[in-house]
Design a protein around this nucleic acid. Structure first.
Length: 307
DNA sequence: CGTCCAGGTCTAC
DNA sequence: GGTAGACCTGGACGC
Protein backbone atom coordinates (compact mmCIF):
# COMPACT_ATOMS: atom_id res chain seq x y z
CA UNK A 1 0.00 0.00 0.00
CA UNK A 2 1.08 3.60 -0.60
CA UNK A 3 1.30 6.32 2.02
CA UNK A 4 1.56 9.97 1.05
CA UNK A 5 4.63 11.72 2.44
CA UNK A 6 3.01 14.90 3.62
CA UNK A 7 2.74 16.29 7.13
CA UNK A 8 -0.55 17.23 8.77
CA UNK A 9 0.12 20.86 7.85
CA UNK A 10 0.95 20.00 4.24
CA UNK A 11 4.70 20.22 4.89
CA UNK A 12 7.15 17.97 3.03
CA UNK A 13 8.51 14.75 4.55
CA UNK A 14 12.02 13.52 3.80
CA UNK A 15 11.77 9.75 4.20
CA UNK A 16 15.52 9.06 4.45
CA UNK A 17 15.89 11.80 7.06
CA UNK A 18 13.08 10.16 8.96
CA UNK A 19 14.71 6.73 8.77
CA UNK A 20 17.96 8.04 10.24
CA UNK A 21 16.37 10.53 12.59
CA UNK A 22 17.36 8.80 15.77
CA UNK A 23 19.44 5.88 17.04
CA UNK A 24 16.38 4.19 18.49
CA UNK A 25 15.06 3.88 14.93
CA UNK A 26 17.57 1.07 14.61
CA UNK A 27 16.76 -0.80 17.81
CA UNK A 28 14.58 -3.92 17.49
CA UNK A 29 11.86 -4.37 16.50
CA UNK A 30 12.86 -1.60 14.11
CA UNK A 31 15.64 -2.08 11.56
CA UNK A 32 16.95 0.64 9.29
CA UNK A 33 18.80 -0.07 6.08
CA UNK A 34 20.01 3.34 5.00
CA UNK A 35 21.51 1.95 1.77
CA UNK A 36 18.38 0.64 0.13
CA UNK A 37 16.87 2.68 1.93
CA UNK A 38 14.18 0.97 3.99
CA UNK A 39 12.71 0.61 7.43
CA UNK A 40 11.59 -2.79 8.63
CA UNK A 41 9.40 -3.09 11.70
CA UNK A 42 7.53 -5.92 13.33
CA UNK A 43 4.21 -4.62 14.58
CA UNK A 44 1.93 -5.95 17.27
CA UNK A 45 -1.58 -5.73 15.87
CA UNK A 46 -4.91 -6.34 17.56
CA UNK A 47 -5.08 -9.96 16.55
CA UNK A 48 -1.65 -10.78 15.18
CA UNK A 49 1.96 -9.77 14.64
CA UNK A 50 3.29 -8.76 11.23
CA UNK A 51 6.62 -7.62 9.82
CA UNK A 52 6.34 -4.64 7.52
CA UNK A 53 8.84 -2.95 5.22
CA UNK A 54 8.63 0.77 4.41
CA UNK A 55 10.56 2.11 1.43
CA UNK A 56 10.42 5.04 -1.00
CA UNK A 57 7.68 4.62 -3.59
CA UNK A 58 6.56 6.80 -6.45
CA UNK A 59 7.30 10.50 -6.08
CA UNK A 60 5.95 11.80 -2.75
CA UNK A 61 4.89 8.41 -1.45
CA UNK A 62 6.22 5.59 0.68
CA UNK A 63 5.35 2.04 -0.18
CA UNK A 64 4.51 -0.40 2.58
CA UNK A 65 4.74 -4.12 2.07
CA UNK A 66 3.80 -6.86 4.51
CA UNK A 67 6.13 -9.84 4.74
CA UNK A 68 4.91 -13.33 3.93
CA UNK A 69 1.15 -12.93 3.84
CA UNK A 70 -1.15 -10.48 2.13
CA UNK A 71 -3.17 -9.21 5.09
CA UNK A 72 -6.97 -8.91 5.06
CA UNK A 73 -8.45 -5.46 4.47
CA UNK A 74 -9.08 -4.53 8.10
CA UNK A 75 -5.56 -5.52 9.04
CA UNK A 76 -4.20 -3.33 6.24
CA UNK A 77 -5.99 -0.35 7.73
CA UNK A 78 -4.52 -1.13 11.12
CA UNK A 79 -1.03 -1.49 9.66
CA UNK A 80 -1.34 1.81 7.85
CA UNK A 81 -2.37 3.58 11.07
CA UNK A 82 0.56 2.07 12.95
CA UNK A 83 3.05 3.03 10.24
CA UNK A 84 1.70 6.56 10.16
CA UNK A 85 2.33 6.66 13.89
CA UNK A 86 5.86 5.25 13.59
CA UNK A 87 6.72 7.76 10.85
CA UNK A 88 4.91 10.49 12.78
CA UNK A 89 3.06 11.55 9.64
CA UNK A 90 0.06 12.98 11.46
CA UNK A 91 2.16 15.55 13.27
CA UNK A 92 2.01 19.14 12.02
CA UNK A 93 5.51 20.59 11.88
CA UNK A 94 4.61 23.63 9.79
CA UNK A 95 4.78 26.02 12.75
CA UNK A 96 8.23 24.70 13.63
CA UNK A 97 9.35 24.99 10.01
CA UNK A 98 8.14 28.58 10.02
CA UNK A 99 10.56 29.35 12.85
CA UNK A 100 13.43 27.28 11.46
CA UNK A 101 13.21 28.95 8.04
CA UNK A 102 14.57 32.17 9.55
CA UNK A 103 17.43 30.40 11.36
CA UNK A 104 20.59 29.94 9.26
CA UNK A 105 21.57 26.96 11.44
CA UNK A 106 18.29 25.16 10.87
CA UNK A 107 16.69 26.39 7.66
CA UNK A 108 17.73 23.10 6.03
CA UNK A 109 15.19 21.19 8.16
CA UNK A 110 12.27 22.70 6.26
CA UNK A 111 13.01 20.35 3.37
CA UNK A 112 11.41 17.59 5.42
CA UNK A 113 13.50 16.76 8.48
CA UNK A 114 12.14 16.56 12.03
CA UNK A 115 10.03 13.42 12.11
CA UNK A 116 11.74 11.22 14.66
CA UNK A 117 10.94 7.55 14.15
CA UNK A 118 8.71 6.49 16.98
CA UNK A 119 8.09 3.15 18.62
CA UNK A 120 4.69 1.54 18.70
CA UNK A 121 3.94 2.33 22.32
CA UNK A 122 5.01 4.70 25.07
CA UNK A 123 5.91 1.63 27.10
CA UNK A 124 8.34 0.53 24.40
CA UNK A 125 9.79 4.04 24.20
CA UNK A 126 10.32 4.13 27.95
CA UNK A 127 11.93 0.70 28.18
CA UNK A 128 14.33 1.52 25.36
CA UNK A 129 15.23 4.81 26.96
CA UNK A 130 16.01 3.19 30.33
CA UNK A 131 18.24 0.82 28.37
CA UNK A 132 20.26 3.79 27.08
CA UNK A 133 21.12 5.11 30.53
CA UNK A 134 24.65 4.96 31.91
CA UNK A 135 25.98 2.55 29.31
CA UNK A 136 27.49 2.42 25.85
CA UNK A 137 25.21 2.09 22.82
CA UNK A 138 26.41 -1.48 22.28
CA UNK A 139 24.99 -2.39 25.68
CA UNK A 140 21.67 -0.78 24.78
CA UNK A 141 21.55 -2.88 21.61
CA UNK A 142 22.32 -5.98 23.62
CA UNK A 143 19.56 -5.35 26.16
CA UNK A 144 16.82 -4.37 23.73
CA UNK A 145 17.84 -7.13 21.34
CA UNK A 146 17.49 -9.73 24.08
CA UNK A 147 14.09 -8.42 25.17
CA UNK A 148 12.73 -8.68 21.64
CA UNK A 149 14.45 -11.95 20.75
CA UNK A 150 13.44 -13.85 23.86
CA UNK A 151 10.19 -12.20 24.95
CA UNK A 152 8.69 -10.88 21.72
CA UNK A 153 6.04 -12.65 19.68
CA UNK A 154 7.08 -13.98 16.27
CA UNK A 155 5.52 -12.74 13.08
CA UNK A 156 4.91 -15.07 10.13
CA UNK A 157 8.21 -15.61 8.33
CA UNK A 158 10.38 -14.71 11.32
CA UNK A 159 13.81 -16.35 11.46
CA UNK A 160 14.12 -19.11 14.06
CA UNK A 161 16.50 -17.08 16.16
CA UNK A 162 17.49 -13.47 16.61
CA UNK A 163 15.41 -10.37 17.18
CA UNK A 164 14.31 -10.02 13.54
CA UNK A 165 10.66 -10.74 12.86
CA UNK A 166 9.55 -10.37 16.45
CA UNK A 167 7.43 -7.67 18.02
CA UNK A 168 8.45 -5.73 21.09
CA UNK A 169 7.37 -7.73 24.17
CA UNK A 170 4.21 -6.89 26.05
CA UNK A 171 4.49 -5.46 29.55
CA UNK A 172 3.12 -8.75 30.84
CA UNK A 173 5.79 -10.78 29.08
CA UNK A 174 8.48 -8.50 30.48
CA UNK A 175 7.02 -8.61 33.97
CA UNK A 176 6.90 -12.40 33.91
CA UNK A 177 10.52 -12.76 32.82
CA UNK A 178 12.59 -13.60 35.88
CA UNK A 179 15.45 -11.76 37.51
CA UNK A 180 17.81 -14.29 36.00
CA UNK A 181 16.74 -13.37 32.47
CA UNK A 182 17.55 -9.70 33.00
CA UNK A 183 20.86 -10.52 34.63
CA UNK A 184 22.25 -13.33 32.51
CA UNK A 185 20.54 -12.94 29.12
CA UNK A 186 19.69 -9.26 28.76
CA UNK A 187 22.82 -8.20 30.67
CA UNK A 188 20.78 -5.34 32.06
CA UNK A 189 22.72 -5.11 35.30
CA UNK A 190 21.06 -2.96 37.93
CA UNK A 191 18.51 -1.82 35.31
CA UNK A 192 16.91 -5.25 35.45
CA UNK A 193 14.97 -4.37 38.59
CA UNK A 194 13.81 -1.09 37.03
CA UNK A 195 12.61 -2.81 33.88
CA UNK A 196 10.75 -5.48 35.78
CA UNK A 197 9.08 -2.96 38.08
CA UNK A 198 8.17 -0.74 35.14
CA UNK A 199 6.67 -3.67 33.24
CA UNK A 200 4.78 -4.92 36.29
CA UNK A 201 3.26 -1.50 36.92
CA UNK A 202 2.03 -1.29 33.33
CA UNK A 203 0.86 -4.91 33.16
CA UNK A 204 -1.06 -4.57 36.44
CA UNK A 205 -2.77 -1.42 35.19
CA UNK A 206 -1.26 0.77 37.92
CA UNK A 207 0.73 2.77 35.41
CA UNK A 208 -0.83 4.22 32.26
CA UNK A 209 1.97 5.34 29.98
CA UNK A 210 0.01 5.46 26.75
CA UNK A 211 -2.03 8.45 27.86
CA UNK A 212 1.15 10.53 28.06
CA UNK A 213 1.46 10.69 24.28
CA UNK A 214 0.72 14.12 22.90
CA UNK A 215 -1.74 12.65 20.44
CA UNK A 216 -3.55 10.82 23.24
CA UNK A 217 -3.68 13.75 25.67
CA UNK A 218 -2.96 17.05 23.91
CA UNK A 219 -4.26 18.98 26.92
CA UNK A 220 -1.92 17.31 29.40
CA UNK A 221 0.82 19.86 30.20
CA UNK A 222 4.47 18.89 29.68
CA UNK A 223 5.24 19.65 33.33
CA UNK A 224 2.70 17.06 34.43
CA UNK A 225 3.97 14.50 31.92
CA UNK A 226 7.49 15.06 33.18
CA UNK A 227 6.38 14.61 36.80
CA UNK A 228 4.74 11.31 35.96
CA UNK A 229 7.72 10.04 34.00
CA UNK A 230 10.11 10.96 36.82
CA UNK A 231 8.12 8.73 39.15
CA UNK A 232 8.96 5.68 37.04
CA UNK A 233 11.81 3.42 38.14
CA UNK A 234 15.05 4.22 36.33
CA UNK A 235 13.68 7.42 34.79
CA UNK A 236 15.49 10.64 35.70
CA UNK A 237 15.81 14.04 33.98
CA UNK A 238 17.59 12.69 30.92
CA UNK A 239 15.21 9.78 30.38
CA UNK A 240 12.13 11.93 30.96
CA UNK A 241 13.31 14.48 28.38
CA UNK A 242 14.14 11.72 25.95
CA UNK A 243 10.80 9.93 26.26
CA UNK A 244 9.00 13.26 25.99
CA UNK A 245 10.78 14.05 22.76
CA UNK A 246 9.58 10.73 21.39
CA UNK A 247 6.05 11.63 22.50
CA UNK A 248 6.06 14.80 20.42
CA UNK A 249 6.63 16.95 23.51
CA UNK A 250 9.73 18.91 22.53
CA UNK A 251 9.90 21.48 25.33
CA UNK A 252 12.83 19.74 27.04
CA UNK A 253 16.33 19.32 25.66
CA UNK A 254 17.92 15.88 25.84
CA UNK A 255 21.18 16.64 27.67
CA UNK A 256 23.47 13.69 28.17
CA UNK A 257 27.01 12.43 27.61
CA UNK A 258 26.43 12.22 23.87
CA UNK A 259 24.62 15.51 23.20
CA UNK A 260 26.77 17.72 25.43
CA UNK A 261 30.12 17.03 23.71
CA UNK A 262 28.39 17.03 20.33
CA UNK A 263 26.94 20.49 20.71
CA UNK A 264 30.27 21.77 22.04
CA UNK A 265 32.09 20.38 19.05
CA UNK A 266 29.60 21.90 16.63
CA UNK A 267 30.10 25.27 18.29
CA UNK A 268 33.87 24.84 18.20
CA UNK A 269 34.18 24.86 21.97
CA UNK A 270 35.49 22.58 24.66
CA UNK A 271 32.37 22.55 26.81
CA UNK A 272 29.15 24.52 26.88
CA UNK A 273 27.13 24.98 30.08
CA UNK A 274 23.64 23.45 30.03
CA UNK A 275 22.10 26.83 30.79
CA UNK A 276 23.71 28.33 27.71
CA UNK A 277 22.52 25.45 25.53
CA UNK A 278 18.98 25.88 26.82
CA UNK A 279 19.23 29.60 26.24
CA UNK A 280 20.26 29.16 22.63
CA UNK A 281 17.23 27.01 21.83
CA UNK A 282 14.75 28.72 24.12
CA UNK A 283 13.39 30.86 21.25
CA UNK A 284 11.93 27.70 19.74
CA UNK A 285 9.58 27.39 22.69
CA UNK A 286 7.73 24.10 22.62
CA UNK A 287 9.96 22.97 19.74
CA UNK A 288 13.25 23.70 21.55
CA UNK A 289 14.08 20.03 22.04
CA UNK A 290 13.41 19.20 18.40
CA UNK A 291 15.49 22.15 17.20
CA UNK A 292 18.32 21.00 19.45
CA UNK A 293 18.11 17.42 18.24
CA UNK A 294 18.14 18.42 14.58
CA UNK A 295 21.04 20.79 15.15
CA UNK A 296 22.98 17.83 16.58
CA UNK A 297 22.09 15.29 13.91
CA UNK A 298 22.39 17.33 10.73
CA UNK A 299 25.52 15.39 9.72
CA UNK A 300 23.76 12.02 9.96
CA UNK A 301 22.68 12.45 6.35
CA UNK A 302 24.90 14.24 3.85
CA UNK A 303 23.77 16.91 1.43
CA UNK A 304 23.26 14.42 -1.41
CA UNK A 305 20.83 12.56 0.77
CA UNK A 306 22.67 9.35 1.57
CA UNK A 307 23.19 8.19 5.11
C1' DC B 1 45.69 -6.00 34.63
C1' DG B 2 43.46 -1.83 36.90
C1' DT B 3 40.86 2.32 35.84
C1' DC B 4 37.63 4.83 33.40
C1' DC B 5 33.34 5.70 31.42
C1' DA B 6 29.35 5.08 28.07
C1' DG B 7 23.17 8.76 25.37
C1' DG B 8 22.24 8.50 34.48
C1' DT B 9 19.60 7.36 38.52
C1' DC B 10 18.93 6.45 43.31
C1' DT B 11 19.79 7.02 48.03
C1' DA B 12 21.50 9.35 51.86
C1' DC B 13 22.98 13.11 53.81
C1' DG C 1 16.98 21.68 46.95
C1' DG C 2 21.50 20.38 46.05
C1' DT C 3 25.44 17.14 46.04
C1' DA C 4 28.71 12.75 46.92
C1' DG C 5 28.95 7.50 46.18
C1' DA C 6 27.42 3.32 44.63
C1' DC C 7 25.87 0.86 40.74
C1' DC C 8 25.81 -3.83 36.37
C1' DT C 9 28.37 -4.33 32.19
C1' DG C 10 31.98 -4.44 28.81
C1' DG C 11 34.94 -2.09 25.61
C1' DA C 12 38.74 1.38 25.52
C1' DC C 13 42.50 2.97 27.37
C1' DG C 14 47.03 3.46 30.20
C1' DC C 15 50.64 1.10 32.56
Amino acid sequence: MDIELRGAGGEPVDLLRTFVSHGVADLPPLFVDARRPSLTVTLRLRRSVRTVVVAPGREGFAVVTVKRSEPPAEMRGEIEREIRRVLRLDEDLSEFYGMAADDPMLSWVTRGAGRLIRSQSVFEETVKTVCTTNCAWSATEKMVGALVEHLGTRAPGAPASGAAGRAFPTARAMADAGEEFYRAVAKAGYRGAYLRALAEGVAAGDTDLEELDRDASPALPDDEVERRLLRLPGVGPYAAAHVMMMLGRYSRLVLDSWTRPKVASLLGRDTVPDAEIRGRFQPYGRYAGLAFWLFLTRDWVDEEGSA
